[in-house]
Amino acid sequence: MASNIVTALFRPDEFFGEQSKEEPALAVPLGIVFIYGILSAIAGYQMAALMAPMYDVALEGYGGVIAIFGAIGGFIGGIIVWIIASVVFYLISMAFHGEGSMKKVLEAVGYGMAPLIAALGIGIAYLAMVADQVVAPVIRDIMDPVAAEEAVEVFMNQPVMADFTLLQTFLSIVFMIWAANIWYYGIRHARKLTARDAGITVIIPVAIYLIIAIASYGVF
């Protein structure tokens, strides 16, 4: 299994060429997505735990609940990313008369999410390291959207969180490019597409994601 993942990461053309001759097997991709989901849950919990004191006055002791919801949201989000990406690739590749099954696409997209685990892992480790430097401003009136927005803005603009946001954005972009590279070969073999069609299939949603990611960081 480990050798499968390593091959998928570094020699995706060769790996998915071999995989295309076999029946789709979702065990490993599911494992990757599960790990991704767990890490997303941890990241969600981390961020919710850091921001919980902001709402403590209004929600009196519900910090733990907020953090748990953050974790659940993170896990589900991880799974949803896998499914949505697979559906999007499947639908776009339909325009190029792709032939492979949805299961094959899910398998390819699952393998392709392996680099994103690294991005999440690094982000979690970094945030854990600097968590004690994070100051959570208090939102006294939760019903005041301006105050809440100001508090979140102040929270995100403090140096340690600004560094974390920058790191997170860079990592998600860099590792998404790696993931896109894997998806490119994966979709190409799974849906039996030409190099151009596979490139277009992958590049459109990935490019949209990258633009959104960079835009949300405030570059545009």
Partner: peptide
Amino acid sequence: RSGLMPVAEQDGGMSPLVIGIIGLS
């Protein structure tokens, strides 16, 4: 008050650790 919390603004300099992680990645 939240909006006026004396949280230090970003001074423009990036943490060397962040630069290192990004570069390595």
